[in-house]
């Protein structure tokens, strides 16, 4: 009987633990957001994190977008040539980039950079008592450390995705015109003829959500870390992995919300 029940109990425990964690993260997020509505505000910190996320992620996101656009053009051309539908290449490139690949790839790149950096920085502050020190220095650590980072993430990611959208389309255009024999004006016309506002807007909404998730997981994992350098390392890994998985899962949910009829 015990043998039979043990796995069930283990599953039950795991599910309960997961629910507790989800609840705790949600409360943490709510508290962080609530501090954005009440003074004092840390504008200087917000700008610093904004630069850290938006400006310093530009090279990585730009390279990712260009190459993705180029590969998309090549692949869709080979595929569509089998159906004599080569004309759809520009269309496929722009839709894939704006709706999906721009936000998801930018999100994953930023999760690697920023999720890790935030978790390490806040985790180090946790294990060296700096977060406790903030409290004794008349400063709310949620307000000082978490709120500006969350806001910076939500603002920075859509900006990065606009850049990724433009460069991704340029990557496709580059291959389309140099290798696949499209005319430059014709390729661009095909790109914009089929593009709808919703394609771009949905991508930007996704980006804002991903920006929130990335910074939230970075802050949360850092905040919870304990046990010295090893604990901070573990927090960093968890932040990146959980943010990446959440990005892919939420991408599905958001796509469903935007486009399911």
């Amino acid at each position: 009987m015990d043998l039979l029940l043990n796995p069930v109990a283990a599953i039950g425990r795991a599910v309960l633990g997961a629910c507790r964690t989800v609840g705790a993260v949600a409360l943490f997020a709510l508290e962080g957001v609530s501090h954005l509505l009440r003074p004092p505000f840390y504008g200087r910190l917000f700008l610093r994190h904004l630069a850290e996320i938006a400006y310093f992620s530009l090279p990585v996101v730009a390279l990712t977008a260009v190459f993705t656009g180029m590969v998309l053009a090549l692949q869709s051309y080979t595929g569509f040539a089998r159906f004599n539908a080569e004309g759809a290449v520009a269309n496929v490139v722009v839709l894939s980039i704006t709706r999906e690949l721009g936000p998801v790839l930018a999100g994953l790149m930023v999760a690697g950079r920023i999720g890790a950096a935030f978790a390490a920085e806040i985790g180090t502050m946790r294990v060296t008592d700096q977060i406790d020190a903030l409290t004794t220095l008349s400063t709310n650590p949620m307000k000082y450390l978490v709120a500006p980072r969350l806001l910076a993430g939500v603002v920075a990611l859509p900006f990065l995705v606009v850049v990724a959208d433009i460069l991704g389309v340029m990557g496709g255009w580059l291959i389309g015109t140099t290798k696949l024999g499209f005319g430059s004006a014709g390729y661009l016309k095909a790109t914009f003829d089929f593009l709808e506002v919703m394609d771009v807007v949905s991508g930007l909404v996704k980006a804002a959500v991903f920006g929130f998730v990335i910074t939230l997981m970075g802050c949360w994992c850092g905040y919870q870390s304990k046990g010295g350098a090893q604990g901070v390392g573990a927090a960093t890994t968890t932040a990146v992995v959980s943010a990446s998985i959440l990005i892919l899962a939420l991408d599905y949910v958001l796509t469903e919300m935007f486009f399911a009829r």
């Binding site: 700096q130 406790d132 220095l137 400063t139």
Partner: peptide, 24 residues
């Protein structure tokens, strides 16, 4: 409070550490 290991904010220069509470 003086913390056991100092707990100085290493992202800030010393003068901002010292005046952190007064600024806050």
């Amino acid at each position: 409070m003086l913390f056991q290991n100092g707990a100085l904010f290493d992202s800030l220069p010393v003068w901002e550490n010292v005046c952190f509470k007064l600024l806050a």
